[in-house]
């Protein structure tokens, strides 16, 4: 019983740590530039930038899956929520100037997803780097 309790507590603790750890090691090329310029990404009206970021961090799966259904089933295009835009800003570039897939180890998406142990299924089909022409 006590062994179970220890397991339970450590799981709790690690999830708290994972949630509390707001440091994101690898924002990606464009997003870092954006941040360095002092711009406030994902800023929402009536909300502080910090709160907006937390909302973005917590809600991005819901935002994305809501939009994906609208786009695919109803043909609703454009707007702010677009997976291709996530990829566009949050990919990094390697030494040779080539884009690194955003779901590769230690990249933007995979870092957190690995930490909180949730699957990341977008990129079994979606493109993992910005489009060639961009």
């Amino acid at each position: 019983m006590s062994r179970l309790l220890i397991v339970f507590l450590s799981v709790m603790l690690s999830s708290v740590v994972a949630q509390a750890d707001h440091h994101i090691p690898n924002l990606g090329e464009k997003a870092t530039e954006f941040k360095d310029e002092g711009k406030e990404a994902h800023k929402r009206d009536g909300m502080s930038h910090a709160a907006s970021l937390i909302l973005q961090r917590k809600m991005h799966p819901e935002l994305l899956s809501h939009k994906r259904d609208k786009t695919l089933r109803q043909g609703v295009r454009g707007g702010v929520v677009q997976l291709s835009k996530c990829v566009e800003c949050h990919t990094s570039v390697d030494k040779d100037g080539e884009f690194i897939p955003v779901n590769a180890p230690d990249q933007f998406c995979s870092t957190c997803h690995k930490k909180v142990g949730t699957s990341l299924d977008c990129f079994s089909c979606h493109r993992t780097t910005p489009a060639e022409e961009m």
Binding site: K43, R44, D45, G46, M47, L55, M59, K70, Q74, G75, V76, R77, G78, G79, V80
Partner: peptide, 15 residues
């Protein structure tokens, strides 16, 4: 529920 972005790019209408 979700306050909107500052400069909001418009979404198209459903087909």
């Amino acid at each position: 529920t979700l306050t909107t972005y500052a400069a909001l790019p418009k979404e198209s209408n459903p087909v």
